[in-house]
Structure formats: C-alpha cells, structure tokens
Design a protein around this nucleic acid. Structure first.
Length: 865
RNA sequence: GCGGGUGUGGCGAAAAUGGUAAACGCACGAGACUUAAAAUCUCGCGUCUUCAAUGACUUACGGGUUCGAUUCCCGUCACCCGCACCA
C-alpha cells in the first residue's frame, strides 16, 4: 500500500496542468464562457490563510465550471500601488518599487503551490507602467467627456509629514505617523463626477439580483437619496435670502429659528466684522472629526442678530443662529429648525430658550399651550412631561394642526410633504428637490507611489492633458523618502516638461491617483491584460461580465461603487460594451478565517500574547506549556501578528500539503461566515484525505464481484446530486459533508471491484474542485482517462435518486410514535391502514378512535387523537 | 439614534416549498488490533428521569397560526455588522 505524500505529488500535478494548459483562457465562441474573479490582493509581503480560503472558493467554482463545459477565465493580479510601500521605504530605506515587486514575487511563489487553477499568463500589477499608462489614457478620455474636474476641497493636512491624510489616518485629531495636530487645509483637488450617476447607481441596484441584499442596502444608504424642498428665507435687512433644504417641508409652520453652518458664506461674512462670531466659528471648526467626538459634541449656537421672514407670513420673523451641528457640504448648509418634530432641534431650542411649535400630533391628542403661549401637543411639550420631539414614521397618519395648506387635516407625513412641495412650486416660493449624500470622488493624493495624473499645468494654456502618445507618464525611479512631503513635488527635474498644447515650458501635475482608481477597472483589463489600449472590444465583448465575483464585505461600498461608476464611464468612452456597465453579475462576500488568541496578564495587567504551540489546551482549561500558568482563550478572533494567532499557509503546506489547507478552509462553516482555524481541524482534514487515498489505492487493487453494487450506484448518484447542489449554491461545507458521508458509504459497501472503482472515480471527480491534486492522483490510480481536471463533471440520473420504498414516520398529535416502511407509490388509504395498525399508534390512542388522519405521501403520517 | 443580520448539543454546524431536529466533522468515552504506543478500524455520544426507553423535555425567551413550526406571524432579550449632527 502506498502512502499519500502530498509534498511530492502536488508539484507533479501542478506541472501537469501547466503543461496541458488546462487553465489558460483562450477565446472560443463555440463554448459558453465563465469569468470567475476573486478580489486581487495587495502585495503586503506574504499571503495569509484568509487568501487561501478566498482563492479556494474561486478555484472550486472555476474548476467546476471547467468540468461542466465552460470556457473559464480565472485570473490573478496585484493591487500594487499604495502607502505601505512608501512607509516601508521611509522606515527601512529602499524603493517602493523594489519592495512591491519583491513582495509580489514572494506571494506568487506562495500561491503557486496551492494549485489554484489560474491563468498566470494574464497576471499584472497595477504599478506596471503598462497598466497605469492605460489608466492615464482613460483619465484623458474621462476629461474629454466631462467626467473629471478640479475644485477646492478641504483635506486633512499633516504639517510635519507635509502630506494629505485619509480620514482613517487621523487619530484623535493627530497624524497617525507624525503625531502632529492635523490641519484642515483647502487644496485644489481632482474629482470624478460620480454624483452625476447617483440616481442611476441607485436604480441599477435593483437589477443586481445575485448580489447580497446587505451590500445593495449598504450602497443604497451610502448614495442616500432624499426628497425635499428647497426655498429661501428673505432677510429683514434686505440681504441675500438664505436658502435652505428640508425633507420635512410639512413642518414649516413649526419653524422657530434658522440655523446656518459655521462655514456658511453668511457666517464667514459676519466673522470679518464681529470678533465674537469669529471666535465661535473657530471653536466649531476645531472640533474633532471622529465619530465619537461628533456624537458627544454639545450642540452649540450663536445668535447672529439677523432676522428672516417666514415665506408664508412676512410678519413672522425668525432669528438666524450659527450652529455647530450644521454641515456646509450637505444641502445648502442652512436649515430651519423645527423643534417639535426633530430631536436635535428640540435640544437646541431648549438650550437657547427658543419656542417649540408643533404642526401635527398623533391622533386624538389634546392640545395645550406652552410657556410661550403657543399651542403644543402632548407629544412634544416639556411642560407636559415629554422630553422627546414627536417624530413618527412618515408613513403614519397624524393630524396636521398647523399645516402649510389651510385647515387642519388627518394624513400621513409622506402625503403632507408632497402636498407642501406642490403648493410651494405652484406659489413659486420653493422647488421640490432630490438630494443625494453621495459626494464626488476626490482622487488626488499627494503621494509618490500611485498612478501619476497625466496632465500638465501651463501658464498660458492652463490645465492641459498629456498627449496620448507620450503615455505612460512614468514615475521617476530616482526618488528618496528621507524627507517629508511628496517626492514628485521636490524631484529636481521630473515635473518639468513642455506644454502639450503650446510647447512652452510647463509643469506636470504631481498628484497621483487614489488607489481605488487602480482597482476600479482591473477586472476589465484581465480580458486583454497586455493590449496597447485599455481594453480590446472582442475580448471585453466575449469575457465580460464577471460571472462570479468573490471578496470581502469590507469592499461592499467604495470599491464596488467606484467600479460600477468606472464601468459606466468606460462605456461612455467606448472601452466597455453596454452590457458591462454593471460588471459583476454575481457577488459573494466570504467570511474570515479566525483563530483563538491565547493571552495572559503581566504584573501591570497588560495582555501578553502566546503562540498556540506554547499553549496546552485541556478540558480543564488552557495553560502555558512551560510554566503551567493559566491562559485565557479568546475564540474566533481576527488573525493579527501582534496577537500571535496568525496561521501561515506555508506551514500548513509543509506539514500537510495544499489539499489539506484547501479542504479545511472549505469545510465546517458556510463560506459567508467566519471559520475558525484549529490545529485539530487541520489534522482531521489531513487524516481524512489520507484515508480517502488509502481507500482509492486499495479499491484500485481489488478484484472480483461483491454484493450491493446497485446500492452503491444509487449512493453514487445521490452523492453527485448533493455535492453538485452544494457547489452551485455556494454551500461548500455541505458538499464536503456529503463527501464525508459518501466516503463512509463506500467504505462500508461490500460491492464488487468494478462497482467500487466506478464509485471511487466519481469520488475523485467530486473532490477535484476542492482537493485537485489528490483527485488527480486517485483518478490516475483508478484508471481514469487524462486529467480529472479536464474530465466531464458526472451527471446524476434522476431515476437513480428515488428509492423504491420509503420509511414514513408516524406521528400522533405531532409526536413521533412509530414508523413504517412502504413502497413509495402505495395509495394513501393503504398507508393509513398500516399506520393505524402500528404498535406505537395503538398505544398512543389507547383504544380511542382518531379524530383525523393526515397522510402526506412520501413524507409523514400524522394521527390526530 | 437609523438600518440590517444572527441566536440549534461541549464546539463548528445540517435540515427544498412548514413534515422524523441535531446529517457531517471536532472534542470526548468504550472496544478491537498491538508487548506497548502511534496509526487504523468498530461502537457510543442533546438534556433530564440516581440505570434505562416504547418516557418527558429540547432549535435564545414569551405568545400566536397549524394536524404538525428551527422554518410563518407578534412581542422580549442578547450578540454582531453597516451608517450616523445628512436637515
């Protein structure tokens, strides 16, 4: 008997696939295509077990689709621009390019032994000039189509590193690296006009039926559509009217103040003349931008002394306040406050003693007056004990006691909003407006390691796109990271160029692109990865869309939304066909691989983490192997080097082989859920695979007839049906459970050599997507023709799936009392007679006649006593 | 605060359309083989009834619909995720 030695067998089959070109994708109109893609990795240095799970899922699909007659595209590349490379250069010298390409080499070398069925000939990194040059070319196309523009925007500026920081790099108002107080600085930045597509990106979500609802919902929330009214409040002093936007125009008669943002033009104007206001505004602006800071921040306001007239009653004057909770970049940066129906406005009015006027109340509420002598409902009156504003769902019917439209009436908020908008439009003092939360996509980064924005600043001609024949605008190699700031900016010669338009000396743009740009079209580039245009029509026509996209939920919003925008923009510029404006037909978001954390405490009660191999886990608890100290076990934690709970795929491959790693990460948990890596589980996976190999080996050497060939054949067809259903339905854990059960069945079967060999060959095929190397080895040992990877997927014969007889449980009042085994097509009345005669039923009925008997053919019998 | 999700043995989990709850695996226990161990194989394994099942209970908790509910409906609790001064 030969032992299964993964280390020698796995490379052998990898070479065989390679030589046969099994996974090389070639256009073939005669075959249905299938494009499966996993979100490509950032080349951080090493792959981790999460990558293994992610890519194994894609590989299972790819190999299954190949076996079912599809022409499969399954590529891999690297999302290779970004800050970590620059940080590494700053920390330890060297060049981001060397660091990045070195990491890519390492990771490719780690991925190849895992046996993924990838077309490696299509590999690229986004930092390849060949790739980013095409990206620059598209940027110029986008400029021509008006999809890109420049404007001033406020950024987080680190004055020490002299660079712009992303929000997540600002910690407690300080730069994450320098620790310096971050400033808000206005810079001219490049933007993509994604907001032009707000409505379409929202509407099209409905068509993405094979995306998780959760992701669609997150995107919808992010786009944040709201319907409201925009109108102006005329100033008593005759100055320019203050425009406001509201989603609750139905509460207009409950307005008690106007609030403007500290960044509102009027606030800035007042600032110049009034030091008190200047001080107040400065204080508001200083406030932290973190979520907690915002949540706990006190509502602050300052009366400007300005007054405005109510649009429906010129004699009604309202004060204008500057308030710290009003954002300049949403709506118009100004609101009217209606404290009766908005908790935040109510808090504000209580604090500054402004009136509370309600406009509607819940049905049947008695109306009283508050201390200002104004009518107020029970719902919002502090005097009457309620601390909360009355904010019912807009769909709820309420009584409008003070509506914009004449006499009090009962209606829903939705109806009242629409009616108010209609009135405002008819009377000409306001317009109905749809507002989106989605901002334009700021893509400028004051960084070196990114795609240079291919434009030139000319004194005479202004901003001029580089000529396409001069692309790519390459990053210079001779840069250093020993001083703060953008190396492109301080490079002695790189930025100096000639204006593409007038030929006079000009300066290159030194901003580079957000790395989200790189990942917004790589899926399209994979269809023709080395073409000298961004895409090639025949290739995108044939291969797009991505039939199955697989990746982490952390990309649910930005990456996927940006890609959807990019696909539309590319279509407008002729780089993608219409069908590809939604590039991902199906999306699957996989869970993480987690691992327990082992922690003890030091003298200062700070956590000390331990490697799993240093810990002994027994029933009574976990202890340190060396000292016997008790160890706290935190299960199912995200892997992190600092917590010492990382599993290195290389170790697993060395100890057990790639198939074991692949098998384990696909078993146990459903793929969308997290799976906990345990040493025992990996061990068990390895044992099972060698058991299957032993079975295959023994069965291959068997001869002679046996008993129960037909039963084994039935079991085989059942296994085919179940395993296939599991793969089709993204329930790989179920497929694996069925494969375990099938192995048990074969082992117990006493069938003859031929029958067992046939069953085992099917086993090899069914296992091949998950454990391809073992499957090839089994297939070869059992006399299968060619590579199992190329063999046609077995088909389950429906006739073989139905048993001649069925075992029916017999219930009395819903409790199981007995069972009978009957031919599957036995008439109902005969089944009922047999069921009634069973000992279990007789005992339960105790001689009394049944009230009713329900027979569900092939399922169950229930006797109602 | 708003929105979404999850809750089943010691653990990971499984159960088209409502129809035998706990498949499969881990851990654990017993046994076989062995001088012994490892490996392997066989059997057992939700809880309670001091043993046991042809007994009772059991899918977070409380109700409801139904002949029958892990599945459908209402309510409560816990945990997780996303968004959040968005007018």
């Amino acid at each position: 008997m030969s032992r299964y030695d993964a280390r020698s067998i796995e490379p052998k089959w990898q070479k065989a696939w390679d030589e046969a070109g099994t996974f090389k994708a070639v256009r073939d109109p005669a075959k249905p295509k299938y494009y499966v893609l996993e979100m490509f990795p950032y080349p951080s240095g090493r792959i981790h077990i999460g990558h293994v799970r992610n890519y194994t899922m894609g590989d299972v699909i790819a190999r299954y689709k190949l076996a079912t007659g599809h022409n499969v595209l399954h590529p891999m590349g690297f999302d290779a621009f970004g800050m970590p490379a620059e940080n590494a250069a700053m920390a330890s010298g060297g060049h981001p390019k060397d660091w990045t390409y070195g990491n890519i080499d390492t990771m490719v070398a780690q991925m190849k032994p895992l046996g993924f069925g990838l077309d490696w000939s299509r590999m690229f990194a986004t930092c390849d000039p060949e790739y980013y040059g095409q990206q620059q070319s598209m940027f110029i196309d986008f400029m021509e189509k008006g999809l890109v523009y420049r404007k001033n925007a406020v950024v987080n500026w680190d004055p020490v590193d002299m660079t712009v920081l992303a929000n997540e790099q600002v910690i407690d108002g300080k730069g994450w690296r320098s620790g310096a107080e971050v400033e808000r600085r206005e810079l001219t930045q490049w933007f993509f006009k994604i907001s032009d597509f707000s409505e379409e990106l929202l509407d099209a979500l409905d068509g993405l039926e094979n995306w998780p609802d959760k992701v669609r919902l997150m995107q919808a929330n992010w786009i944040g559509k709201s319907r409201g009214l925009r109108f102006g409040f005329d100033r008593v002093d005759g100055g320019e009217a203050i425009e406001v936007f509201t989603t609750r125009p139905d509460t207009l008669m409950g307005a008690s103040f106007i609030g403007i943002s500290p960044d509102h033009p009027i606030a800035k104007e007042l600032e110049a003349a009034n030091p008190e206001i200047a001080a107040f505004n400065a204080r508001c602006r200083k406030g932290g931008t973190t979520a907690e800071a915002i949540e706990t921040a006190e509502k602050l306001g300052m009366d400007t002394g300005l007054k405005v007239k109510h649009p429906l009653d010129p004699s009604w004057e309202l004060p204008v306040w500057i308030a710290n909770f009003i954002l300049m970049d949403y709506g118009t940066g100004a609101i009217f406050g209606c404290p009766a129906h908005d908790q935040r406005d109510l808090d504000f009015c209580r604090k500054y003693d402004l009136p509370v006027i309600d406009t509607f109340s819940s049905l049947g509420v008695e109306r009283k007056s508050d201390k200002h002598g104004l009518p107020v409902s029970l719902d919002s009156s502090p005097e009457l004990g309620s601390a909360d504003a009355y904010v019912p769902p807009k769909t709820e019917r309420v009584v409008y006691t003070k509506p914009v439209f004449g006499a009090p009436r009962e209606m829903t908020g939705e109806q009242a909003v629409e009616e108010t908008i209609n009135i405002a439009e008819k009377q000409g003092w306001g317009v109905g407006l749809t507002q989106y939360r989605l901002r334009d996509w700021g893509l400028s980064r004051q960084r070196y390691w990114g795609c240079p924005i291919p434009v030139v600043h000319c004194e005479a001609c202004g901003v001029v796109p580089e000529k396409k024949e001069n692309l790519p605008v390459r990053l210079p190699d001779d840069v250093s990271f020993d001083q703060p700031g953008n190396p492109l900016d301080r490079h002695p010669s790189w930025a100096a160029t000639d204006c593409p338009k007038c030929g006079k000396p000009a300066r290159r743009e030194t901003d580079t692109m957000d790395t989200f740009v790189d990942s917004s079209w790589y899926f399209a580039r994979f269809t023709a990865p080395h073409a000298d245009t961004p895409t090639v029509a025949e290739d995108v026509d044939y291969w797009m869309n991505v039939d199955q996209y697989i990746g982490g939920i952390e990309h649910a919003i930005l990456h996927l939304l940006y890609s959807r925008f990019f696909a539309r923009a590319m279509h407008i510029c002729g780089h993608l066909p219409k069908k590809a404006i939604e590039p991902f037909n199906a999306l699957f978001t996989q869970g993480m691989v987690t691992h327990a954390i082992y922690v003890t405490r030091d003298d200062n009660d700070r956590p000390v983490y331990h490697f799993p191999e240093d810990v002994e886990v027994t029933e009574s608890g976990a202890r340190l192997g060396a000292t016997g100290e008790a160890v706290e076990v935190i299960p199912s934690a995200k892997m992190s080097k600092s917590k010492k709970n990382v599993v290195d795929p290389e170790d697993i491959i060395r100890d057990y082989g790639a198939d074991t790693a692949r098998w384990f990460v696909m078993s146990d948990s459903p793929p969308e859920r997290d799976v906990e890596w345990t040493a025992a589980g990996a061990e068990a996976a390895a044992k099972h695979l060698s058991r299957v190999w032993r079975m295959a080996d023994e069965i291959a050497g068997m001869a002679g007839a046996g008993e129960g060939d037909d039963d084994l054949l039935r079991a085989t067809h059942k296994a085919i049906a179940e395993v296939t259903a599991g793969i089709e339905g993204f329930q790989f854990n179920s497929s694996i459970a069925k494969l375990y059960a099938f192995a048990n069945t074969i082992q117990k079967s006493k069938a003859g050599a031929e029958a067992k060999q046939a069953a085992m060959r099917v086993m090899a095929q069914l296992m091949s997507p998950m454990t391809p190397h073992l499957a090839e080895e089994m297939w070869a040992r059992l006399g299968g023709a060619g590579l199992v990877a190329n063999a046609d997927w077995p088909k389950a014969d429906p006739a073989m799936l139905v048993d001649d007889s069925v075992t029916l449980p017999i219930q009395v009042n819903g409790k199981r009392r007995d069972e009978i085994t009957v031919p599957k097509d036995m008439p109902k009345d005969e089944v009922e007679a047999l069921a009634m005669a069973t000992a279990g039923v007789q005992r339960a009925l105790d001689g009394k006649p049944p009230k009713k008997v329900i027979v569900v053919p092939g399922r169950i019998v229930n006797v109602v006593a």
